[in-house]
Write a protein that binds this DNA or RNA. Structure first.
Lengths: 118, 118
DNA sequence: TATAGTAGTATACAAAAGTATAGCGCTATA
DNA sequence: TATAGCGCTATACTTTTGTATACTACTATA
């Protein structure tokens, strides 16, 4: 009752930031890449090996996207030959909670699948 | 050091469930629909009005998808004329943490944008 | 000298996601 | 009788996402 009056505003106040977040994290690969980088800076090839199934094209596009949105920093070290690393910015450090919540939910999913199917 | 040895397994153990979760929550609309339903069961038209910008085609497809994956229950009430409602299942109730984490992150995003841009 | 790793880009294509618009049969209301 | 709401589906289209394969120029190793 009191809920019905309050609801529309409450619903919007959740929807808006969530949609902002989803706009940046969209697609199949962004969070997996961020997770891989959450263990420390990595080189292109290292990320490619950890995020199974991603193609070079997608990886380079997603890294560029993430860089544009300020989630990832690309660093060129002037060793010889040059070495390039990617690392997270504070912006994506703050994704920890999102990732942890998704991990937990994914595990619940799997448990339910197993108990239903097999 | 100790981290480096542990990392590959640790990384995989996070990546797998997160990717399971993302496979089900993919796209622009699933979480917004779930958020709308988190305030209680709703009819098709009500959802359409709350999730701004979604087209009928997408809404009916996403609802079917969510139903198939056990996140939403479609109920047909035999009033006259029939009334159809959608409600969350316990499976998607457990998404609360994910949504809350995304909401918080989305708000941080917006704050940073404002302080950088305007 | 041949091979493999480095960090990607180029090209072409297929599949999925999303948009726009129209329409259906039904019922309740003006 | 006309209109609006109900819960969708149909058709056609565009955009985004993703795959597959080949290629570059460089360096280090076998």
């Amino acid at each position: 009752m009191a809920k019905k009056i309050k609801e529309p505003e409450e619903c919007k106040s959740i929807l808006k930031p969530v949609r902002d977040a989803l706009d940046i994290l969209n697609g199949k690969w962004k969070l997996p890449i961020i997770i891989a980088l959450s263990f420390g800076e990595k080189r292109y090839g290292e990320i490619a090996r950890e995020v199974h199934g991603i193609t070079d094209r997608m990886l380079s596009r997603e890294l560029r996207d993430l860089e544009i949105n300020g989630l990832v920093k690309r660093k060129v070290l002037d060793t010889h030959p040059v070495k390039i690393t990617y690392e997270l910015t504070p912006q994506s450090d703050s994704l920890d909670e999102v990732i942890e919540a998704l991990r937990k939910w994914g595990m619940i999913l799997r448990k339910n699948m197993v108990s239903k199917k097999k």
